[in-house]
Computed example of a mutant assay.
Amino acid sequence: MPVDLDDLKLLSKIDRSNMMGAVDRFPDVFLRSRDQWDVSFKKPRSSIRSVVLMGMGGSASAADVVLDWLKAALPVPAVVHREPGLPAFVNARTLFVAISYSGETSETLAAFQEAKNRGSSLMGIGHGGSLASFCDRFKAPFFEVEASLAPRAALGQLIVAASSALERAYLVRSTTREISRAAQELGRIRRRYRVETPRADNPAKSLAEKLLGHSLVIYSLQRMSSVARRFKNQLAENGKLLAKYDLLPEAGHNEVEGWHERDNMLPVIIRDAQETAFEGSIFRAFRATIGSAGRSHPLDVHVAARGRLSRLLSPIFLLDYVSLYLAMLRRIDPTPTNLINEYKKR
């Protein structure tokens, strides 16, 4: 029997750990005071020549968002790193920010210790664990975030902490005002996506029903890649669904050729609320090409938003809900991640 997304009692039985409630609270994180962190960075800004944000999984998603948001404002090159080995450029003039919600991510801890060996300036972000202990031992600033249902549900806390870390290192100006504006926008759109809002008026429920039964291929511009990758990961962790993502316009120079046979694949194109005319022409050309070749009908995800941070967080918020509604439609509890746990034990 198909799942009725307006049957709140049934959805509550499926979502036994209330991941839906964790997503509902996403806007609230950005309204909280950041005075909780009594953290100082003693080196001058001129001593930093590169920034590395290190993380895995949901912690790396926060790093992706922060760089998509603030990279243009940073006076030095910055990258998100996702493996224990470090690139050759990491040295004494690098600010190395380790992000691990649990504080126990082996790859992040290994890279953190290697950065220490190279003389890098260190910061840590997480809920505690070994990373907090390392920061205490190395006398490195540690930004402790509050507990959450799962690392992926701590995205907001980690974004705020990571942006605060860059502020404390004097690499960006205060982000308080933009964070507050984004929180207000998220609060306004939350009522449209919440489980209490019926399908007829709920874009998240409607989109989930359109996506059900398809293998999803997600596309975005480079500057929206954090949104695309987050959605791909949320489909896996919440919905237990495989998906992939790629970037435009690059995909128009290679992957577009693979759409001769679609094999039940559905393209999902994440749009930016502010695009140039040239970018709009890229999307139109890509949609028309894959539509004619594979008879597929790409779905656009477009959320109105103002401000760079809001243009990232608003579609993330929508698509987090979509991943949960897809799990409900398949009668899957979104919270357990049994295969991730098995992988970590091996």
Score class of each variant (00 low, 15 high):
residue 2 P to D: 15
residue 2 P to V: 13
residue 4 D to R: 08
residue 11 L to V: 10
residue 12 S to C: 12
residue 16 R to M: 08
residue 16 R to L: 11
residue 18 N to Y: 12
residue 20 M to E: 04
residue 21 G to V: 06
residue 41 F to S: 01
residue 43 K to C: 07
residue 46 S to K: 10
residue 47 S to Y: 07
residue 47 S to I: 06
residue 48 I to K: 05
residue 52 V to D: 02
residue 54 M to D: 15
residue 57 G to T: 10
residue 58 G to W: 06
residue 60 A to F: 08
residue 63 A to Y: 09
residue 64 D to L: 15
residue 65 V to A: 01
residue 68 D to N: 15
residue 72 A to H: 07
residue 73 A to S: 13
residue 74 L to G: 00
residue 75 P to C: 05
residue 82 R to M: 03
residue 83 E to H: 12
residue 84 P to T: 06
residue 84 P to M: 10
residue 86 L to V: 05
residue 90 V to Q: 05
residue 92 A to C: 04
residue 95 L to K: 00
residue 100 S to L: 06
residue 102 S to R: 01
residue 104 E to K: 07
residue 108 T to K: 00
residue 108 T to V: 15
residue 113 Q to R: 15
residue 114 E to T: 14
residue 120 S to F: 07
residue 127 H to G: 09
residue 128 G to S: 11
residue 130 S to N: 13
residue 131 L to V: 12
residue 131 L to E: 03
residue 132 A to N: 09
residue 134 F to W: 09
residue 138 F to V: 00
residue 138 F to K: 08
residue 139 K to C: 08
residue 143 F to H: 04
residue 146 E to K: 15
residue 146 E to P: 00
residue 148 S to E: 14
residue 149 L to P: 03
residue 150 A to H: 13
residue 154 A to D: 04
residue 156 G to W: 07
residue 156 G to E: 02
residue 158 L to S: 01
residue 158 L to I: 11
residue 163 S to D: 01
residue 164 S to H: 11
residue 165 A to Q: 04
residue 165 A to Y: 02
residue 166 L to K: 01
residue 168 R to A: 13
residue 171 L to G: 03
residue 173 R to K: 14
residue 174 S to E: 08
residue 174 S to Q: 02
residue 176 T to Y: 03
residue 178 E to R: 05
residue 179 I to R: 12
residue 184 Q to G: 10
residue 188 R to H: 11
residue 188 R to A: 10
residue 191 R to N: 06
residue 193 Y to W: 12
residue 195 V to R: 15
residue 197 T to N: 10
residue 204 A to C: 04
residue 204 A to S: 08
residue 206 S to K: 15
residue 207 L to P: 09
residue 214 H to F: 14
residue 216 L to Q: 03
residue 216 L to H: 01
residue 223 R to V: 04
residue 223 R to K: 13
residue 224 M to I: 03
residue 228 A to F: 08
residue 229 R to D: 12
residue 233 N to F: 11
residue 238 N to T: 07
residue 239 G to N: 04
residue 239 G to A: 15
residue 243 A to V: 11
residue 244 K to W: 13
residue 248 L to S: 03
residue 252 G to K: 00
residue 252 G to D: 10
residue 253 H to M: 03
residue 254 N to H: 14
residue 259 W to V: 00
residue 261 E to W: 14
residue 268 V to D: 04
residue 270 I to V: 13
residue 272 D to G: 09
residue 278 F to Q: 11
residue 278 F to E: 12
residue 280 G to F: 09
residue 283 F to L: 15
residue 284 R to E: 15
residue 285 A to V: 10
residue 285 A to L: 13
residue 289 T to I: 13
residue 291 G to N: 08
residue 291 G to R: 05
residue 292 S to H: 11
residue 294 G to D: 09
residue 294 G to N: 03
residue 297 H to A: 14
residue 299 L to W: 05
residue 304 A to K: 07
residue 305 A to Q: 00
residue 305 A to H: 00
residue 308 R to I: 03
residue 314 S to F: 00
residue 316 I to Y: 05
residue 318 L to P: 06
residue 319 L to Q: 01
residue 320 D to L: 05
residue 320 D to I: 09
residue 320 D to C: 04
residue 324 L to I: 14
residue 326 L to C: 08
residue 329 L to D: 04
residue 330 R to N: 14
residue 333 D to H: 06
residue 335 T to G: 03
residue 335 T to V: 14
residue 338 N to K: 10
residue 341 N to S: 15
residue 342 E to L: 15
residue 343 Y to H: 11
